[in-house]
């Protein structure tokens, strides 16, 4: 049971890290603000959720799910809101020009 959980945990964490890597690659390589945001916000939330799930599996205790879940919810929430705010600010700057 422990080994199964560990394998599942490591797999999920690896997937999560690769999501974050793709997000970083997107921020680095994509040409403009909106497409960078698109790459960042989605891959970021998904990557963190996968890592948190993996970490909970590695920890092997159900109560760690609560704390990690709270982290994921807060990061996803602020990610969505900040992405929205940045896009808004970018668009209104475009209007001014």
């Amino acid at each position: 049971m422990t080994t199964v959980l560990q394998v599942v945990g490591l797999t999920l964490t690896t997937f999560g890290v690769s999501f974050l890597l793709i997000a970083a690659l997107g921020v680095w390589r994509l040409p403009d603000v909106l497409s960078r945001l698109h790459a960042l916000t989605k891959a970021d939330s998904a990557g963190l959720a996968l890592i948190a799930l993996g970490a909970a599996c590695l920890k092997g205790r159900p109560d760690s799910l609560l704390v990690l879940g709270l982290c994921v919810v807060l990061v996803a929430l602020s990610g969505v809101t900040i992405g929205h705010l940045i896009a808004r600010a970018h668009l209104s700057e475009g209007d001014l020009e």
Partner: peptide, 16 residues
Amino acid sequence: VLGELMLPFARIVVPM
């Protein structure tokens, strides 16, 4: 004015 997403954000984050 920070847009319509600010209200749900504040509703969750501030009590938390």
